[in-house]
């Protein structure tokens, strides 16, 4: 992470105008708070790759192609247990099915973009960048400025993820197991989601989804996550829109799921 914008000046830099650089940079700043988490999670994934005896280059390869941390870990776990290749791939795709939902929610946001931009921005789509893009898009009515903003959100975030995994594979387990680095996963998603919970349907979607995930916890292959998300969306879409006041109950309150 650099601390200042890539000095736009008055002339285009690399054929890209100063306004585009500024919009790109605004996007990068918007997602920057999540980058340390991504790097730490990347270090952990890279270390995991070498720990199970795979070559170090496989870590950045996986991060640059699959680009979805949870599914990459699931693949490593499946390979470690000598699961058939098809099961390993299918598990990853089930976990990543949620990206189809993000893709659908980004369709209106990307609607006015040229095809090559859609292809590139789809490739760079992550949970974090999709959420930031959807939440911030209404502030960017101009499609040109919007796509540079979203590129700034998505591109650098994927870059630090790949760099983090490469570093993790080279350095090995630099992070002690006692630190329980897995906490990064819920923490990052709380940081993205909770500040953006501003309507009753959104609060309900989060609450219903949480309850269903816990009730269906015994389903295999992470299906509880997929079904929880789908039911949360389906049921909460019946709740009328009305601004939630800031005192709304946090949907991820740990006590919320204890009853199931």
């Amino acid at each position: 992470m650099t601390t200042r914008p890539p000095s736009p000046g008055k002339k285009p830099v690399a054929g890209i105008g100063p306004q585009q650089w500024r919009d790109f940079w605004t996007g990068t700043v918007a997602i920057a708070p999540l980058m340390p988490g991504s790097i730490v999670f990347g270090l952990a994934f890279g270390a995991l790759i070498t720990e199970v005896g795979l070559p170090a280059w496989m870590a950045p390869y996986a991060s640059a192609t699959v680009t979805a941390g949870a599914s990459q870990i699931a693949i490593v776990e499946a390979l470690r247990q000598n699961a058939p290749m098809l099961i390993a791939v299918a598990t990853a795709l089930v976990i990543n099915a949620r990206l189809a939902l993000y893709s659908a929610s980004l369709a209106p946001v990307f609607a006015a973009f040229p095809r090559r931009w859609k292809l590139i921005l789809a490739y760079l789509m992550t949970d974090q960048s999709a959420a930031v893009s959807v939440f911030e898009a209404p502030r960017w009515p101009d499609p040109v400025r919007r796509r540079w903003f979203i590129l700034g959100v998505s591109g650098p975030f994927v870059t630090v993820w790949i760099a983090g995994t490469a570093a993790g594979a080279l350095l090995g387990p630099v992070i002690p197991e006692a630190w329980q680095i897995g906490f990064i996963v819920p923490l990052m998603f709380i940081a993205v989601m909770v500040p953006a919970l501003r309507t009753w349907p959104a609060v309900a979607a989060a609450g219903i989804s949480t309850a269903v995930v816990l009730i269906l916890k015994d389903l295999p292959y992470g299906l509880n996550v997929l079904i929880g998300a789908l039911l949360g969306i389906a049921l909460a879409s019946f709740i009328p829109d009305k601004k939630a006041d800031s005192g709304a109950e946090p949907a991820t309150d740990p006590t919320g799921g204890e009853g199931s």
Partner: peptide, 8 residues
């Protein structure tokens, strides 16, 4: 509602 539901 996709983002809040999936993230939760």
């Amino acid at each position: 509602l996709v983002a809040p539901a999936a993230m939760a």
